[in-house]
Computed example of a mutant assay.
Amino acid sequence: MRVEIWSDIACPWCYVGKARFEKALAAFPHRDEVEVVHRSFELDPGRAKDDAGPVIPMLAKKYGMSEAQAEAAEDNLGTQAAAEGLPYRTRGRDHGNTFDMHRLLHLAKERGRQDELVQGLYAANFAEERSVFTEGDERLVGLAVAAGLDADEARAVLADPTAYADEVRADEREAAELGANGVPFFVLDRKYGVSGAQPAEVFTQALTQAWGARSPLRLIDQADAEACGPDGCAVPQQS
């Protein structure tokens, strides 16, 4: 069975949702027969490569809140990430264009190192002090090497803006055709879709149903799970 995950490295709910899905997958009896493929989705595809900025002011502007409220929202998201065993840096992060990261992920897919790279990119973006947006190509090359890719091959991809560009755009078109207007978006064996960072129990249900059923794509659980879309990411409220 194949599970395709549309996501963006800039999406915190993708980071959390991946962990929740993997918790369900680890307990799934047929986990060794499940292939996971990461697919590209840019939250801001028109953004310039050199356009990067801090997260807190961006959240305040996008959602019409004060920076103090944005900080509180980040703190709450950090708490939810921690509940999944994920480090999450609530202050000092930035955001920017992720197109080159998606291109590298397609290289990593061909080399059998895609999951390692996507996890490394998430950790670098959400947990580390160094930026993945402002330090240039060598920052991404270092992450690619840490994931098991060849440095020169990664550099060659980054130096050629056309390398894997068509693959990224094809993923994004397919997401739109499947009705995904936000991420994370999980498609299980082209039978079921799960939208948002749902609880692990929802992923368990979807895995079980997709394994044993044959039907057109159906969305599992239409509750308002947290996700990121073109207009931004759902902002968690303090309870």
Rank of each mutant, 00 (worst) to 15 (best):
E84D: 08
Q119D: 12
G46R: 13
L158Q: 02
V37N: 08
T208P: 03
I5E: 02
A163K: 14
G212Y: 08
A210D: 05
A227T: 06
R91T: 14
K23S: 15
D50F: 06
N76F: 00
L158E: 02
P199Q: 12
K62D: 15
A108D: 02
G53R: 14
R113T: 01
H95L: 08
P87E: 13
A234S: 15
L219H: 09
A124Y: 04
L107C: 01
L219F: 04
A123D: 08
K49W: 05
Q205P: 09
A81C: 15
A147E: 04
R91Q: 15
S131A: 08
A72F: 01
E42S: 06
E129Y: 03
V34S: 08
V235Q: 15
I5S: 02
A225G: 15
A72H: 10
E153M: 11
E33S: 14
F21E: 05
A213D: 15
R173H: 07
F99P: 02
A197G: 10
Q238A: 07
Y15F: 13
S239P: 15
C14L: 00
R139W: 01
T134H: 12
T134F: 09
M65A: 09
L217H: 03
A180H: 07
M65I: 13
G112C: 02
P45F: 10
A225P: 02
D231K: 08
M58Q: 12
G142K: 01
F203R: 05
A165F: 00
W211K: 10
Y122Q: 04
M1T: 06
F41E: 06
K49L: 12
V235R: 12
A154K: 02
P87L: 06
C11V: 05
R2Y: 03
R169E: 11
H38N: 13
E84F: 00
G17I: 04
W13K: 08
C11Q: 06
T98S: 13
K18G: 02
G193R: 03
E153A: 15
G136N: 11
T204A: 15
R93A: 06
A52W: 08
L219T: 07
R214H: 13
G96S: 04
A156T: 07
G136C: 07
D8T: 05
G78N: 12
A154T: 06
A52Y: 04
Q80V: 10
Y122H: 14
A73D: 07
F99E: 09
Q209W: 12
V16W: 01
M1V: 08
A223L: 05
L217C: 05
A48T: 00
E4D: 09
A151V: 09
G92H: 12
S239W: 06
E201S: 15
I5C: 11
F203Q: 05
N97G: 06
F99G: 03
